[in-house]
Amino acid sequence: MTKDDERSIPAEHLTRVTWALRRAEWAVQARKDQRLRPLGMAAAQYTLLISVNTDPGLTGAELARRLNVTPQAVASQVARLEERGQLERRPHPRHRHVQELHLTDAGRASLHDADAVIVGIEQRIAEKLGPKKAAQLRALLDEVADVVREA
């Protein structure tokens, strides 16, 4: 047995909860991207728009922390959405070097269309699981998030 064999990870890693969460996340993200593509939107852009819609006036740095991505990734997406007229930057009322992000009317319309797509994906999941399992899944995922935050 080589030293590498002693340090290898057993195949049971595929049965871990975190691996199951990741596989589910990949599947959902892939479906979101596939279904949003005809609207000219990526799942990451939807996430950014829904975040700004929920909390208008976020800064790029706040958004990056909230989405757990780099400020550069947010800046790149903001620039694309701004070019499309879906997002605008406004001066922060107290910090002259900071800009707040706000949806435009076009951004709200695009978000509305994209959200209908996402709701369709969520409905499909809920239909397949049934109301009881869907509620259990949501409760378990909330619990997982709480446990991980506490760790």
Rank of each mutant, 00 (worst) to 15 (best):
P10N: 13
L14Q: 10
A30V: 13
K32S: 07
P71I: 02
E12N: 14
A61I: 03
R16P: 05
Q45F: 03
A20L: 03
R37K: 14
A44R: 05
W26I: 13
A43V: 00
E12Q: 14
Q34H: 10
G60T: 12
A11I: 07
L21V: 08
A11V: 13
R7I: 08
A24Y: 02
V17G: 06
A43C: 00
P10R: 14
R65W: 05
A20S: 13
A30P: 02
V28K: 02
A30D: 12
V28P: 01
T59W: 00
G40Q: 06
A64L: 14
R7M: 08
N68F: 12
N53V: 05
M41N: 01
R23G: 06
V17T: 12
N68D: 10
T70H: 12
Y46Q: 00
R65D: 14
P38V: 00
L63Q: 06
I50F: 04
G57N: 10
L67T: 01
G40H: 06
T47I: 04
P71R: 10
T70E: 13
R22W: 05
R7A: 14
T59S: 15
Y46N: 03
P10L: 13
V69N: 09
R22Q: 12
R31D: 14
T59N: 10
E62G: 02
R23T: 02
L58N: 10
G60W: 00
P10K: 07
A11N: 10
R22Y: 11
R7T: 07
P71C: 09
L39Q: 04
R16E: 15
A20V: 11
L67W: 12
A64I: 10
I9Q: 13
G57T: 01
L48A: 00
P56W: 09
A24P: 07
T54R: 15
V17K: 11
Q45G: 09
V52A: 03
G60Y: 03
R31E: 15
N68E: 07
G40S: 05
A20F: 10
W19A: 03
E25Y: 08
T70D: 08
A61D: 13
T15Q: 10
V17Q: 08
L49Q: 05
T70W: 05
W19H: 06
W26V: 15
A44S: 08
A61T: 15
S8H: 02
T54H: 13
L63M: 04
R65K: 14
G40W: 04
Y46S: 00
R7C: 08
R7H: 13
P56Y: 06
G57L: 06
W26C: 11
A27H: 07
V69P: 01
K32R: 15
E62K: 08
R35Q: 11
Y46F: 08
Q29C: 09
V52F: 12
T15V: 15
